[in-house]
Amino acid sequence: MSFLDELGQYLGSANNREQIVDTLAEHCYLALLPLVLGIVLAIAIGWLGRAWPRARGVILVLANLVYTIPSLALFVVIPSLIGTKMLDSINVVVALTLYTAALLVRPVLDALDAVPPAVIASATAMGYRPARRFLTVELPLAVPVLAAGVRVASVSNISLVSVGALIGVGGLGVLFTDGFQREYFSPIVVGIVLTLLLALVVDLLLVLLRRLLTPWDRTPAPVKTEVAA
């Protein structure tokens, strides 16, 4: 039987198709919810790092450390840390949130540092209080630098979700473990293709979102010379 026949047969089964759709949906959820939570967490940590410059060094070292913990180890350790069941999808969400935050702490700090001090000073002079200034002036201006980091984090999350299959919660990764156990190629190939497609689509959406959030960043270079004001 050729591979294409095998693939046809695999996709022909309504059961299999249902499993594919379910795992895809789960994959989206397991990758994107932590992405959002991780961004929020990283921004909160970034705010701390700006407000309290002495903590910056420690924050960055901790972030690096968290990101070096192997994902499988983290998936396994988390239930004992937060008291969830081993097969709970929360474990994956928590672990990936930590990774996302760890990955984004530096870009967040870099992005906030890149906001021109004159703009922050003028916001203060206009009468912004610190929290509102952070949310409505500093953060929107940090988006262009931050967006690059978020794209990396989204790809990283989408690929890491599959590892969760080894503890039974893994979105499309379940297709890999299934395929391996049954020595059956089709689910593996479908899993790989869908993971790639998902990463591409999410990346595209993130690019669009960034454009939507930063209409001001698409302007031509400032006019340098002029005859009269």
């Binding site: 703009v119 003028s122 002036v137 201006l141």
Partner: peptide, 10 residues
């Protein structure tokens, strides 16, 4: 403020 310090995103 010097250099106007306008909000670039508005």
């Amino acid at each position: 403020i010097q250099h106007a310090g306008l909000f670039p995103h508005r």
